[in-house]
Amino acid sequence: MVLRVDGLEVRYGKLHALRGASLSVAPGETVGVIGETGSGKSTLARAVLGLVPASAGQIVVDGTDVTGLNTRQWRAFRRRGVVQYVFQDPLRSLDPDLTIASSLTEPLRIQGVSFAEAASRARELLKRVSLGPELLDRLPGELSGGQRQRVAVARALIVEPRLVLLDEPVSALDSSNRVRVLELLKQLRDAGTSLLFISHDLGSVAGVADRVAVLYRGEIVEQGPVRDVISRPTHPYTKLLVGSAPTLRSAAADRAARASLRALLTSEGAVS
């Protein structure tokens, strides 16, 4: 397993953001994590990266138990470049004062690679995300949202990580840019990189993921192969998710079904 999360709990003061989430990603596998805003998706990714502490549970990344690492051990582990992170917001995930070249090469420079070598890798990676080398001297402000998100993906890939965590990588993009990034992720998956693809939209994950886990109020309520979860959802929230995804066929008949699922979920929420 490239990633194994076991009974993970994260608290922010009183708020119980994750309540015993368990999940695993096999080598070369793409796992989607779906959930509504505030369900704990980003918290899960941030806990795996050591950006928030876990209050219980275990996280094993590529054979290393990272649960108890101290700051120095974390830094050493991160420099190995096993795991990388792509953020939700393409506007803020690149330093506005640094050229694309500096941003892209940063992970390698931190590892101590020379600038010349890092820059030539950066050029390769830009090509891999279908961007031209002329972008290297630009600032993020001069790029479109879709281009920036592809640069962010390229930055994550420059250290050749085994696992990439993608936190809503396409949520802020319009459809043509979304397809480009999804296509890129598909290529990555086919090249053998493991992906944890976080999204609030089952639809954008469906085309890329092998398995999906549905996160609802800090718990994983459903998990399985994409096809099974979509065609035979069991939890009411998953049913609502499937029923809500914009599909091209007219969905007028589903309106009533969705209304009753929503009623069910709110009454459950009131109980718990």
């Binding site: 990266l49 950006l51 830094r75 050493a76 582990f77 991160r78 420099r79 190995r80 470049g81 795991v83 990388q84 992170y85 953020f87 917001d89 803020r92 995930s93 690149l94 330093d95 004062d97 640094l98 500096s102 941003s103 940063e106 992970p107 931190i110 590892q111 962010a152 930055r155 250290v159």
Partner: peptide, 26 residues
């Protein structure tokens, strides 16, 4: 708190690196 600083930290940057590369000019 910005994502680009977190991206650097996730790549193993030290505090010194973050301050020199990202914080100082701002």
């Amino acid at each position: 708190r910005s994502p680009y600083v977190e991206a650097a930290i996730v790549s193993g940057a030290t505090i010194g690196w973050v301050v020199r590369k990202h914080v100082w000019v701002k």
